[in-house]
Computed example of a mutant assay.
Amino acid sequence: MSRATYSPFLLAGLMAGAGVLHFTVPKAFDGTVPRVLPGAPRAWTYASGVAECALAAGLAHPRTRRTAARATACFFVGVFPANVQMAIDWRRRPALPRAAAFGRLPLQIPLVLWARKVARAEGASRT
């Protein structure tokens, strides 16, 4: 199998892993929920975990992969405000955690591009 064949499965694994973490260590994610969102942060943490697990399942199945990959790209854009919130909140933390928080911001770009590439590759394989 080529590297491109594994790409949707790697992305699915990333999404599934992140989704599971939202349930196993929710407190770590609660603080990244932008304060402008209504309701309890924990509800948003769990909702995003459910979304990540659902996207992972969609990415893993060939029939839903293209749609799930597009939705994953949108999800990465949608959670960007949480990464900004984290960077703002962690700006006075020690150097390593602060660097990690700020490093997440530009990481969204390759993640969005990766999801779009999976969607395009799946579309090309169906024609």
Score class of each variant (00 low, 15 high):
C53P: 09
R116V: 07
S48D: 12
C53N: 10
L10P: 00
R91H: 13
A119W: 01
T127S: 11
I88F: 13
A95T: 14
M86Y: 05
M15P: 13
R65N: 03
S125I: 06
L14W: 12
A12F: 13
G123R: 04
V33W: 08
W114D: 02
A18R: 14
P26I: 07
T67Y: 12
R35V: 14
K117P: 02
K117H: 14
V50T: 10
A82Y: 03
V118M: 02
R126S: 11
V84Y: 09
L96R: 10
R98E: 00
G123W: 08
H61S: 11
A100H: 15
L59D: 03
K27C: 05
R35M: 13
R126Q: 11
M86T: 06
R3W: 12
M1E: 13
V25D: 09
R3V: 10
Q85E: 12
A87C: 01
G39C: 07
V25P: 07
K117W: 14
G103P: 02
A69Y: 00
H22Q: 09
F9T: 14
P38S: 02
A57M: 02
W114G: 01
T5L: 15
A124G: 12
P94I: 03
R70L: 15
A121Q: 10
G17S: 05
G31K: 14
T64L: 04
R120H: 08
F23E: 08
L21A: 11
F80K: 01
G78H: 08
K117G: 11
G78I: 01
V50F: 13
A43E: 11
A124Q: 10
A82L: 00
A51N: 05
A28L: 14
R104F: 01
G58V: 06
T24A: 07
L21K: 06
W114R: 02
R66A: 03
P94K: 06
R93L: 13
P26Q: 03
A82I: 00
R93Q: 12
T5Q: 13
L105F: 01
S48G: 09
P94D: 08
D89R: 12
R126P: 01
S125T: 14
V25W: 14
L21E: 10
F9R: 11
R92D: 12
